[in-house]
Computed example of a mutant assay.
Amino acid sequence: MNGTSIESKLAKLTKRIDEEHARFIAATKVSVTGVPAEYGLTRDDLTAIKLIKQLAKTMEKQDANLVKTAKKTTRKGVRSGPQPAKYRDFESGATWSGLARVPARIAGGGPHSVPD
């Protein structure tokens, strides 16, 4: 094989790869911008969805940490330490483990209050 023929084949293949990559990027841009527009979503909507998902992950991690600390028990078999939240008011961020009295910030009524 000749060194120039290999170089020319390599140049042709590199050019073809670059063309295919450019087509792929163009098709991806169309699908990424087309799908949200099809459902009437704006950039702000997508940003809000991303922030909500990040907040949910953070809350899950916090609850997981509480579960780890709540697994400690006393001599009587009762769990001690902070308990994971069973009730959460998403507007105020208030939580309640479901043990003891309902905190006033949650029991105050409204659409997110704990049922009687």
Rank of each mutant, 00 (worst) to 15 (best):
D44C: 01
E38W: 03
K50H: 11
S92C: 05
A11P: 00
G110D: 03
V114S: 08
Q54F: 05
I25K: 08
G110Y: 05
K50E: 13
G81W: 13
Q62G: 07
S80K: 11
V35Q: 05
N2E: 11
Y87I: 10
A107S: 15
G77V: 02
N65C: 06
N65T: 06
I52S: 15
R43W: 02
S97V: 09
A56V: 11
T74D: 15
G40V: 05
H112E: 13
T4H: 12
I17E: 02
I6L: 13
I17W: 01
K72C: 01
E7P: 00
T58P: 00
I52L: 14
A104N: 13
Y39C: 02
V30G: 00
R101Q: 15
S92L: 04
T47S: 12
G93W: 09
I52Y: 11
Q83R: 15
A26F: 01
T73D: 01
A100T: 06
Y87D: 04
K86A: 09
K68T: 10
T28D: 02
T33Y: 00
I6V: 10
S113C: 12
K15Q: 06
L51T: 13
K86F: 05
V114A: 11
A64V: 04
V67R: 15
D45S: 12
T42N: 09
D89P: 06
V78G: 07
H21E: 04
